[in-house]
Write a protein that binds this DNA or RNA. Structure first.
Lengths: 176, 176
DNA sequence: GTCTATAATTTGATAGAC
DNA sequence: GTCTATCAAATTATAGAC
């Protein structure tokens, strides 16, 4: 894998655990096994790293959604895939959504990064609304907004309280 | 008002906007109109300030819940009061819940602070579960977990995306 | 309780060799 | 691409005067 991706992996892991401002270039460089000065070669400013992180995260998220609904385009499967993608962050990674962390810190981040977070939520809402609409649900847009927000909150509370049942309770509300 | 409370007010405002690690003693002291060294008289370490913040926030939250449900102990009113308290953070203050911000940064905070956040969510879940139970709802505990998590997520997404309808969509799910 | 002064450390960032 | 060396600024925190 490329150095840039290796750096992004380490940065994403730490920032999803601790937040943007708690993580330093030295922390990330140490995880990767290089010096912090080398990090600036790939990402001149911390804001560049933050922006690249959100962009990669959002692209990957959409990519997984599309890939995993290709074989079964049924809307109820699409909704299940969306829920499962969040569940995996919780149970497989033990991590919050990167954009939930950054969203909570929005006013303390470079403006570009916050814009990326907004775009992530908007595209997720559109995607879920489309599934609800195909399923014939009333107010698909409202339900999608509620679903996206509820799942993000579920990850946060479930992780902090170490109680996965919080997530399943929300998942039950989001499902058809 | 006491100096300590004045300091807590300034710290809470900034940290609910930017997160724990984005806010320095100098930022807070500047808001209050004193020097950062004076801040250490009231809160020796930053962890002491963080802990006091969460404790005060949780106490105040419970206090409002109790006060505003005293006149009308009907469970549907209790649930509405719970929702309204979150809506006020969003619409009147334009702020996230302090514990949602700290919850998102949990692994980057002093351990005591994270414990306080956990306690906040647990007592909120208990309070809401009690209201659901009195209302005769099935699985009151699960619904309460989902409701607390969904409302926290709703504040975050609504604020980042500047779209209050996200909050109302969640509120509709949480209401009876 | 608040101040000045300052220590000790961390942080984001740059210059230049290899 | 990565390193050493370094810097300027910021940050948490303390000592001691008022």
């Amino acid at each position: 894998m490329s150095s840039a991706n290796h750096i992004l992996d380490a940065a994403e892991l730490r920032m999803r655990e601790q937040g943007y401002n708690a993580v330093s270039f030295r922390d990330i460089a140490s995880d990767v096994g290089i010096k912090s000065a080398s990090l600036h070669y790939h990402f001149p400013k911390k804001a560049d790293l933050g922006l690249a992180l959100v962009a990669r995260y959002a692209e990957n998220f959409q990519s997984v959604l599309i890939t995993e609904t290709r074989l079964d385009p049924d809307p109820s499967n699409s909704i299940q895939v969306f829920i499962d993608l969040h569940r995996r962050a919780l149970k497989d990674q033990g991590l919050l959504c990167l954009c939930a962390v950054f969203g909570a810190e929005a006013k303390g981040l470079p403006e570009n990064v916050t814009q990326g977070v907004r775009a992530f939520f908007k595209s997720n809402i559109e995607w879920l609304a489309s599934a609800y609409e195909k399923a014939g649900v009333k107010n698909p847009s409202s339900r999608a907004k509620a679903g996206v927000a509820a799942l993000e909150g579920a990850l946060m509370v479930a992780l902090v309280n170490e109680d996965y049942s919080v997530f399943e309770a929300v998942a039950d509300m989001v499902r058809l």
